[in-house]
Nucleic acid binder design. Sequence first.
DNA 1: CAGCATCCTAAGTGATACTG
DNA 2: CAGTATCACTTAGGATGCTG
Lengths: 114, 114
Amino acid sequence: MKRTKEKCPYHCEIEAAFAVIGGKRKARIISHIGDGKPRFNQLRDILENVSPRMLAKQLRELEEDGLVIRKMHREIPPRVEYELTKTGRAFIPILDNISDWVIEYCPDAAQKIE
Amino acid sequence: MKRTKEKCPYHCEIEAAFAVIGGKRKARIISHIGDGKPRFNQLRDILENVSPRMLAKQLRELEEDGLVIRKMHREIPPRVEYELTKTGRAFIPILDNISDWVIEYCPDAAQKIE
DNA sequence: CAGCATCCTAAGTGATACTG
DNA sequence: CAGTATCACTTAGGATGCTG
C-alpha cells in the first residue's frame, strides 16, 4: 500500500488506515506480535520466506506509525523484542473480525489456507 | 496484495483475507459500492486518478471473489452498475471499525486525510 | 459508456553476502 | 543475533488509443 510523506495524500479514513496496515504481511506481523514478544528471527521463522530486508522494513514502518515498539536489550549476542503499543493492541479485535469474515463468507479463499 | 491460483498459498486467515480485500483501492471501492450502485465512470470520478485499466481489474477481482455483482443493462449507450453481494455487505461493518480505529489511534495518518 | 490492448516506467520484493 | 548493503528481478501501476 502506498506510503507517502505528502501533506494530505488520503481521500478518506479507509485509505489512511490501509497505508498503515495494508503493507505486505503487516497484518500478520501485528497478529503475531500480539501473541507474544517475538524476536526478529522468530518472526522470520513464523512468517516463512521473508528476507531480513523486508521484515526489517515492515517493522520499521509499523514502529514509525506507532503500532509496534522495538525493545533492544544490550546483551551479547544482541536481543531485540517486538511488542504492540496501545494502538497496535486496539487493532487486534479488527483482525479477529477479518479472520471470522473470511471463514464465514469467503469459502474459496478460506480453502486455500495451509 | 498477492493474488495467486496456487492450491494452498495462505498461512492463515488474515493472509487469505488480505488477498481478497487488500488490493490498492479495493477497500475504498467496496465502501463506495456500499453507498449506492455506482456506475463505472462514477467510481472513476470518486476514486480520482484511477486508470480505467486498473479500476476494471480491481472490480473484476472483487467480482471473482464474490464481493461485488456487475449488473449490465443492455441499453445504448451501455450502462453498468456495481453492487455488493452478501459477502461484500458483511465487510462494511469491518471497514467502519477500521475507519474508527485510524481516527482514534493514528492521529498522524488521520491528519493527512483530504 | 464501459471497458480492453499495448507499451512503458517505477516501485516492491527476493537472494545473497556482509557487519556491529 | 539482528540487522544493512547491493544487485537483480518481478509486478503493479500509469498513459494512451481503440472498440462494441
